[in-house]
């Protein structure tokens, strides 16, 4: 990566879900392809490959980005969180738990991008209202649900996170 000559194949080192990972990739490989094909983290989905649908959204240094609109080599030295990295062992992340409780999803294809977008939202804004949730996920297309159940799941996640922060168990009813 420190090469000063343009190369068509490069080594890339990225922290993914807390673990250092390395791969040798074509320059044209997207971050999404690095995750899916080289690192076998297939939870990240490609829904359009031109940056509109949001299915491929991951966290880059804590903020959501489109992994189809980023080259793998651009992630050199950065930290990436994918849907596989949201849960803490067997304990679901609040957005996963909230979406489970509210039947948020149907086919599951847009799900990874929405979960990570929601996780970043709650990080930045722990008590969002419905309008803030809708705005936050407006770059993520879901074709199944009509969004209402997803909005409810994220609002429930905020409650779960608050309950956990207040020292209550976050398992919910």
């Amino acid at each position: 990566m420190s090469a000063t000559e343009p190369r068509t194949e490069l080594d890339v080192a990225v922290e993914v879900n807390g673990e250092p990972r390395r791969a040798r990739v074509e320059a044209r490989r997207s971050l999404a392809e690095l995750l899916r094909d080289d690192l076998e983290l297939t939870g990240t989905h490609l829904g359009c490959e031109h940056g509109v649908c949001g299915s491929c959204t991951v966290l880059l240094d804590g903020v959501p980005v489109r992994s189809c609109l980023m080259l793998a080599v651009q992630a050199e030295g950065r930290s990436v969180v994918t849907v596989e990295g949201l849960a803490d062992g067997d304990r679901l992340h609040p957005v996963q738990q909230g979406c489970l409780e509210r039947h948020s999803f149907q086919c599951g294809f847009c799900t990874p991008g929405i979960l990570l977008t929601a996780a970043a939202l709650l990080d930045a804004q722990p008590e969002p209202d419905e309008a803030a949730v809708r705005e936050a996920i407006s770059g993520n297309i879901c074709r199944c649900t009509g969004y209402e159940s997803i909005v409810d799941g994220i609002l429930r996640a905020a409650e779960i996170a608050r309950e956990a922060a207040d020292g209550h168990a976050g398992e919910g009813a």
Binding site: L41, G43, H45, L86, L92, L100
Partner: peptide, 16 residues
């Protein structure tokens, strides 16, 4: 949903 534990954790198995 029975489907959710895998779908919510990125462990679904889609064609790609």
């Amino acid at each position: 949903r029975v489907e959710d534990p895998r779908i919510l954790t990125g462990r679904g198995h889609y064609l790609d």
